[in-house]
Nucleic acid binder design. Sequence first.
DNA 1: TCGGAACAACTTGTATACATTCGCACCAAG
DNA 2: CTTGGTGCGAATGTATACAAGTTGTTCCGA
Lengths: 225, 225
Amino acid sequence: MYAKAMSVQPAVAPLQIQSVVDHVYSALRERILSGDLPRGTKLRQASLAEELGVSRTPLREALRRLSTEGLVEFSPNRGATVSELDFGDMRHAWSARVALEPGAARLAAERRDSDGIAAMREAIAQQRAATDDKDASFAANRRFHLALAAASGNPHLTRFAEMLWVPRIGVPIYQAQAAEPAGAGGWAEEHERITDAIESGRADDAERLTREHIQAHPPVAPAVA
Amino acid sequence: MYAKAMSVQPAVAPLQIQSVVDHVYSALRERILSGDLPRGTKLRQASLAEELGVSRTPLREALRRLSTEGLVEFSPNRGATVSELDFGDMRHAWSARVALEPGAARLAAERRDSDGIAAMREAIAQQRAATDDKDASFAANRRFHLALAAASGNPHLTRFAEMLWVPRIGVPIYQAQAAEPAGAGGWAEEHERITDAIESGRADDAERLTREHIQAHPPVAPAVA
DNA sequence: TCGGAACAACTTGTATACATTCGCACCAAG
DNA sequence: CTTGGTGCGAATGTATACAAGTTGTTCCGA
């Protein structure tokens, strides 16, 4: 059974060997994004390494990777801390999205990739199905915008969008959603109009609608910080 | 004399302590960008470490940083190599610039920061002064576009622009310059019109001019690869 | 002559050990 | 009571050592 299945697939399948560094990187990233490691947390290497069952060497390499992504910050001889992301950073990230995503939408409209469009529609469906669940709604929203960037077919734009959507946008958008009762539903409709424009190749419309959509929902300042 | 000068400046000046990792990172980055380490070069850790006078530990951390930036690639148990950047990548980078820089120009026009505009004008002057020197001309061109991104006041856009301009755009633009006899001079004029639009706050014009400027100069396929 | 297996040298990946620096507590002097 | 200094503990930064994997070569057989 297995042999047959394997013979059908390409022999040299992915076979993704993940090094210890990759595992540590994924684990830390997950912890930071989920809020398990709040911003400003000092990342002590000895305890973290013991917790993850590895030595400090791969841990440090993973931290370097995260620092290049901006999720953690190194201070010379003082170690790494989870990056502080204040409201100013969030506005910057939103502003960068205003500059980025319309251009990505234009590219997507010029490309009209069916897979990419399908991914966008799927995210819309998920958003419609999760009007009451705030977390799911936010996840679907994020998913749509990442799918939009991916539909551009441009790896750089995709990567940039992921960097912007990672932790910085999450909280404020989430709170904006909570503030707007009709939020999720209205967003799904706007998303759909963008997707339609892309699918029919109306590049100017796709660009304009995306810009208007993002600009219509600026981040909301957190109540606490 | 010094004391007086220092009392004027903020007391806690930069005082940038650079760790060995930072030095190695800068050195490797410089070597890659200058072409001293051509694309596809296998980066053997032992020899590199000895060459730089450090051990493999900080070297590996620097390589991780570079890998997150996309300049080098890790292959499990096979080490790191300088990233292969083919023509497809260059077109992607150019395409990403088309999506990115017009939005940055719009932000810059809304912001109208005098320092940022001064940096742009300085780059234009350098470009005008270096019409015969190809290298200087390209450097000035790159400088203008980075200054444009920086004038947006958005750290994310600045960072993204730097990532796109680093190695990928350089060669093809350089070759395009060589192909167009009147290139440098014409570019300086276009740059100036963009800067004027930003300085006078005409956001729509700045965005449109930037897009047209970039789209008018697509990358040229290298002769060799 | 060509294909393949086995071995050896080398390279990477991870762990451990050592040196340096930082933070904090305690203490003394003004 | 506050301010400056000193010393210890802990954490980081770097170097070295060891284990595991990869690559190139050689030798054998068909």
